[in-house]
């Protein structure tokens, strides 16, 4: 299980990486933490001719704070979130999510940008980013563009990143200090990808609530009816019925067992958030 040959280039700056990407003939890919890409290379499932390594680009490991948001460079590792080594504006939600990604050895290398670029629907960061209304800043030959995460992700393993673009950073709006969150992940084993993943956010003072269900066969879905019910303080059983109806509407392909699973995780996340 060894990769096919590829060329390797360690980019010295974002511009340098873009130039290398634009100039490459054949398939080029950028290397961030490599925790998903390199397994694919080893399995020869990802035909890459040129690998452009981003690790020396200090700008991609930066964090910038503004009153409204925190901007995380694409190479910020899961472990940095887990350890609280980077600023947090989510009342600990990101820290919690990060600490449930795979295993420590993977979290030490794996990055936020890399995870979002892969757009695995079962991954923790994708559903979390949707819940947090994060946006992704892409840099390409024509400069930067910033996409809401829901626009950035087109489908499972499919994003808006153009061939000559890289993720510069992920911008996460600061949540109100009074907001509470719930995070419910159903995984077959500790560290495995989720079979169902729900995130709930509620701030009664601001009359805001958000419910997101992920780790099904498509990209995460925002559940609006469920969120309204959560905000109105609908009791658990009735919330479950509302959520189930919304899932039936938005995810009609679910089997009865899958519908039960996702309904449960949404309701659990919601209950956690308001407990």
């Amino acid at each position: 299980m060894k990769p096919a040959p590829f060329s390797y280039y360690r980019a010295t700056s974002i511009d340098d990486a873009i130039t290398a990407l634009s100039g490459a003939d054949g398939m080029a890919a950028v290397l961030a933490g490599g925790q998903s890409l390199v397994p694919m290379l080893n399995l020869r499932l990802s035909p890459v001719d040129h690998l452009i390594d981003l690790r020396s680009i200090a700008a991609l490991s930066r964090q910038e704070e503004t009153p409204e948001a925190i901007c995380y460079g694409a190479l910020t590792t899961h472990a940095a979130f887990e350890d609280g080594a980077v600023p947090d504006g989510t009342n600990g939600l990101m820290r919690y999510a990060a600490s449930h990604i795979a295993y420590r050895a993977v979290r030490n290398r794996g990055t936020l940008g890399g995870a979002l670029a892969l757009a695995d629907p079962a991954a923790d960061w994708l559903t979390t980013a949707v819940a947090l209304d994060a946006s992704v800043t892409l840099t390409g030959p024509d400069g930067q563009r910033c996409l809401a995460i829901t626009d950035f992700v087109v489908g499972p393993y499919y994003t808006q990143i153009a061939e000559d673009e890289i993720i510069d950073s992920v911008v996460v709006p600061r949540r109100s200090a009074a907001e509470r969150w719930g995070y419910y992940k159903v995984a077959p084993k500790v560290g495995e990808y989720a079979k169902s993943l729900a995130v709930a956010l509620i701030d009664p003072a601001k009359a805001s609530a958000r419910l997101v269900i992920g780790a099904w066969s498509d990209v995460p879905l925002v559940l609006k009816a469920g969120a309204s019910a959560l905000l109105e303080g609908v009791k658990q059983h009735d919330l479950a019925v509302i959520v189930q109806n919304e899932l039936d509407l938005k995810m009609p392909s679910l089997s009865p067992a899958e519908r039960r699973l996702h309904t449960s995780s949404v309701v659990r996340a919601a209950e956690q958030a308001r407990s």
Partner: peptide, 29 residues
Amino acid sequence: CEHGVCGACTVLINGEPARSCIALTVSLG
């Protein structure tokens, strides 16, 4: 396993555990 799951290849990179089967040597300068 050579795809980053089993952990048998775990070593320290700059003091932190990492899967050496999915770390590329050239990237570790």
